[in-house]
Design a protein around this nucleic acid. Structure first.
Lengths: 237, 237
DNA sequence: AGTCACACGTGACGC
DNA sequence: TGCGTCACGTGTGAC
């Protein structure tokens, strides 16, 4: 497995391990230093706060462990910094996305190249493998007039323009809902287009936005759609 | 700054934005409740703690934004929970790893299997592409009025319709060449659209075709573009 | 000096 | 009601 974990831990691992050790051996007696309670049966209140502080510790530990695990699966981790770990992970995932796209087109080339000859099943396997990964973005319970998003992509063209490509099932009122959703987002839309084909809607729109907003833009649309699909979710309107 | 952040808040966005709002209006006065300082000019100490608390806020915000962005690049986000976001990201990266490994072995198989044939250069190209991560689909020698394709995607919608999405650099006559190319392909175009933004062309067209033709369609377009870029290349017609 | 990143305990909010 | 999650302010140690 991993064998090079010991060198570079001059950072928070050391610290964390020490801290974890002492919290593991923390059998729970008196919660902290001698503490008095202002009112009520002091035992109840103190145990309540003690529980809270303990669970909070566990939560922090879990989160740190997850972050640690995240770093483990991401190569080329430059800095041990928490924020950097997440940043590198994002960057890495985006790289994998691009790579996947490139490979997919390559496989298609290969496949079509041998198409006239014996169409090998290996090629089909690879294509199918790629397809199985593509799941529906939204698979929430399909109530009436919800939006079943099939694919949502956000590209940035130039410095201040985004291109959003959205595909979804065409059902009753889907088009209206879609318009409502994008209406509510208050985007700076340059131009937009919706086409309906074979039971699906294809929406392409050009939006004015900064590059940093790209991810937020995407999640914004996703959450808006999800909120529309699930009205009892806490959304303004 | 940003002005369109208020609508879509389902979960911690709401909270965060509200809190951010009120921290913006936090002008800094007395840091907390009346506090006495043991020594030194109290103004210095208070500003020091104020700085610290402010930077700590920024750090937290940055970390949350990163986490937010991380969730954006990971599909199938089940829960909004912080730990769950990281967990899903890890799982997703592992999926991609496995997928990449499988595909790589497949390509190696393919390469070693059929290398002796006339397809050798294409196979090598695919391997190189795989190793060098991402390249432009077409990176042939850029002569005047060539088409530099940035992305080409072909989807099938329904049984007999394809959606083709093509992005390329906008240079002199690119639009004309693009039209010529698609003219020459004799496709059954249902509807088509070209937009120009920030030095790029975005073409979306809907074509009538069988699903089996999908891959050929793609390679057809690619070869047509390549042929236009490099006229002495062997082209069908 | 002073900044950066962190873990901690605590009150608040929602299920 | 307790339980889980969160942001907050604070103290600490490292550079």
């Amino acid at each position: 497995m991993e064998h090079i974990e010991e060198d570079y831990n001059l950072y928070w691992e050391t610290k964390m391990f020490l801290q974890n050790e002492e919290l593991d051996s923390w059998g729970f007696d008196e919660p902290i230093s001698g503490y008095y309670d202002s009112s009520s049966p002091d035992g109840a209140a103190s145990s309540a706060t003690a529980k809270n502080i303990l669970s909070e510790r566990n939560r922090r530990k879990k989160l740190n462990d997850r972050l640690f695990a995240l770093r483990a699966v991401v190569p080329n981790i430059s800095k041990m910094d928490k924020a950097s770990i997440i940043k590198d992970a994002i960057k890495y995932i985006e790289e994998l996305h691009e790579q996947e796209r490139a490979i997919q087109s390559e496989i298609m080339e290969l496949e079509s190249g041998k198409l006239k000859k014996s169409m090998s099943d290996i090629d089909l396997d690879s294509v199918n493998l790629l397809k199985t990964k593509k799941k529906r973005i939204d698979s929430s319970g399909s109530r009436t007039s919800s939006i079943d998003a099939l694919e949502l992509r956000v590209y940035n063209v130039g410095e201040k323009t985004m291109v959003i490509s959205l595909t979804c099932d065409k059902k009753t009122d889907t088009l209206v809902r879609l318009c409502e959703v994008f209406e509510s987002l208050k985007l700076k839309i340059v131009t937009a287009n919706i086409s309906a084909l074979s039971g699906r809607l294809w929406k392409t729109l050009y939006v004015e936005a900064d590059e940093e907003e790209k991810d937020q833009l995407k999640i914004k649309i996703e959450t808006a759609i999800a909120a529309l699909n699930d009205p009892q979710s806490p959304m303004s309107f």
